[in-house]
Amino acid sequence: MTSSSLLLHPKSRAAAGTPPGRRPALALLATEPARATLEAVQALGHWRHAPEQVGQGHTVVLFPGLATDGLTLWPLRRHLERAGFRAMDWGQGFNTGPRGDPDEWLDRLAESIETRMSPAREVSLVGWSLGGFYARELAKRWPDRVNQVITIGTPFNGSADDTNVGWLFRLLNGKRPPNEAALRKRLAEPPSVPTTSLYSRRDGVVAWEACTHARRFRQARDIEVQASHMGMGWAPEVLDQVSGLLASRHDRKAAA
């Protein structure tokens, strides 16, 4: 499947201003491991076919989800490398969430990422779940350096009450997630660069409504995929969507 065909029939959801719903049913959460395992088996078959070479060496930084590290996103990173991208792990190891003041923590993360992505001047940022918040916020700091942002199952338009893992964040970080009131409003605003949110109604960890924009933004859109939350790092449809979106944006900029 070519990158252009991926975008001809996207299962896009127009932002309708619907508030985030309640957390996913526990039945969905309970089946996450089994569904993620099935998606891994499907990914093995998908990998037998080499992806189209569309990356042209463009640098992509990947941010893992809560309580995971770069190994979880290794299938996605490898898929992008096979497609010709320079795909990089965020380099911070296990993701336990921001420590201390969120802005100071993000400043330190930005410095670290900037060092790692050298000599690239322009990058794209891809984040899964909690990692998507980092991608969006770093893009707000680097509007002239970020080509685009892609989030995967990231509940930027919600709160810990729209997930089944709020307790895990508190266990790892020692406090309630810092996304209340003004901070929640800020996190819901997309960066000023092209931003795509991939969400799934089959997500058993976060409410899919919380992964969509509450209103229309000029450079933001939401695309539905079929995947479990745990399997989004290797589900074939997610792999193809991410590489297709990255290639499409890169081609448009090159032609400009």
Rank of each mutant, 00 (worst) to 15 (best):
S4T: 12
S4N: 04
L7S: 05
R13D: 13
G17E: 08
T18H: 08
P20R: 00
G21T: 13
G21Y: 08
R22T: 12
P24Q: 04
L29P: 00
L38P: 00
E39P: 07
A43Q: 11
A50G: 01
A50P: 02
A50N: 04
H58S: 09
F63H: 07
F63A: 06
P64Q: 03
T68C: 14
D69W: 04
R77E: 10
H79E: 14
L80F: 14
L80E: 10
E81A: 10
G84A: 06
G84S: 11
R86D: 14
A87C: 12
D89R: 05
F94N: 04
N95A: 14
N95E: 15
T96M: 08
T96G: 07
G100A: 02
D101P: 08
D103A: 10
D107C: 11
L109A: 08
E114R: 15
E114S: 15
P119K: 11
G127D: 04
G131I: 06
F133N: 05
Y134R: 01
A135W: 01
A139R: 07
R145F: 02
N147A: 05
Q148S: 13
V149C: 11
T151Q: 04
I152F: 05
G158Q: 12
S159H: 11
A160K: 03
D162W: 02
T163F: 05
F169S: 06
R170E: 15
L171G: 05
N173Y: 12
G174M: 11
R176E: 15
R184P: 00
K185I: 00
L187K: 01
P194K: 09
T195G: 02
S197M: 14
R202N: 13
R202W: 12
V205Q: 06
R215T: 11
F217Q: 06
R218K: 13
A220M: 06
Q226V: 10
M230W: 04
W234F: 13
V238P: 08
V238F: 07
V242M: 09
G244F: 07
A254C: 10
